[in-house]
């Protein structure tokens, strides 16, 4: 197995920090899957944190990218790694780094080695080396980290701007622990918190309804009543973690809802896409 990547752009390093930072907000430990075309950060936890699937195109981050997987048929690498430790390693390179090299190395244990070159004041080049320990996953575990199947959702809605969404969610967290997130086909989205002492519901309107075409949905729209809300209950902390993890302003967030079964957020930024499957609370 070999992996080696290199960039000379500070903006790439900064973008990497943002992506890893976002993932780090949601989980302490995740799987970094490296394939020829893509890099993925994957968290597969259905119960507590929810599932995260973050896809990046390495061409947008590295000028040089080379990898050699387990074998020719299974040309991939799966590493268990802490995203926060990657951020720590990369932070050396903010503002001034000349180059960043990432390698999969075998020291006393397998490591991702981050080699960052910084010009010093005297003009000489200093090289900083950070080893982030990783755990190489054997092939029999790979199947646990497959791309989540996107089920047939009842509704898909483009969420309101992140900023207002986040501040409202923060307030709702102070009122209760769980929120019912629902939307209807008129473009209304509702966030509702109900506790013994109060019921609060925030209603967004005129949102874009996203129509996902996947064959079987053709017959669906007719039997959907326009005003009916489809929703599910989630832990506000999980939603907030997802929202506050996004350090850059995403172009849009799509929220897919499957009544009482699943809430799936899909976030697209220029070069990264993050999917987050929130655990749904049933009562």
């Amino acid at each position: 197995m070999k992996f080696r990547a290199k960039t000379e752009e500070i903006s790439n390093i900064e973008q990497l920090i943002r992506v890893c930072g976002s993932i780090g907000k949601m989980t302490q430990l995740c799987v970094l899957r490296i394939s020829e075309q893509n890099m993925f950060f994957i968290l597969n936890d259905k119960v507590v944190h929810g599932g995260v699937w973050c896809q990046m195109n390495p061409d947008n981050f590295f000028e040089e990218y080379r990898m050699e997987g387990l074998s020719e048929e299974s040309n991939e690498i799966y590493l268990e790694v802490s995203p926060d430790e990657i951020v720590q390693a990369l932070k050396t390179g903010t503002y001034a780094a000349k180059t960043l090299k990432v390698k999969l190395t075998k020291k006393s244990s397998p490591c991702l080695t981050f080699e960052i070159e910084l010009p010093s004041q005297s003009g000489r080049i200093q090289t900083f080396i950070h080893d982030v320990p990783v755990n190489v996953l054997p092939k029999r575990l790979w199947s646990d980290y497959k791309e989540p199947l996107v089920p047939q959702f009842d509704i898909s809605v483009a969420m309101p701007p992140l900023k207002s969404l986040k501040s409202v969610t923060e307030r709702l967290k102070n009122l209760g622990s769980y929120m019912e997130l629902s939307a209807n086909h008129n473009g209304d989205m509702r966030m509702r918190v109900e506790t013994e002492q109060a019921t609060v519901s925030v209603n967004f309107k005129d949102l874009e309804i996203v129509h996902v075409d996947n064959g079987s949905s053709q017959s669906q729209p007719q039997n959907r009543m326009m005003g009916r809300f489809y929703g599910a209950k989630v832990d506000i902390k999980n939603l907030l973690m997802f929202l506050s993890g996004q350090l850059v302003n995403p172009s849009r967030i799509i929220c897919n809802i499957m009544e009482n079964r699943a809430i799936h957020c899909f976030l697209i930024q220029e070069d990264v896409s993050i999917q987050y499957c929130m655990p749904v609370i049933n009562n």
């Binding site: 309101p160 207002s164 409202v168 013994e196 002492q197 109060a198 019921t199 609060v200 519901s201 925030v202 209603n203 967004f204 309107k205 005129d206």
Partner: peptide, 19 residues
């Protein structure tokens, strides 16, 4: 009866009902 609040900002409406 509960105290009902209706707040509106930029088209976003919040209904609250506080015991």
């Amino acid at each position: 009866t509960p105290l009902m609040l209706l707040l509106e900002e930029l088209g976003v409406v919040t209904d609250c009902s506080i015991k």
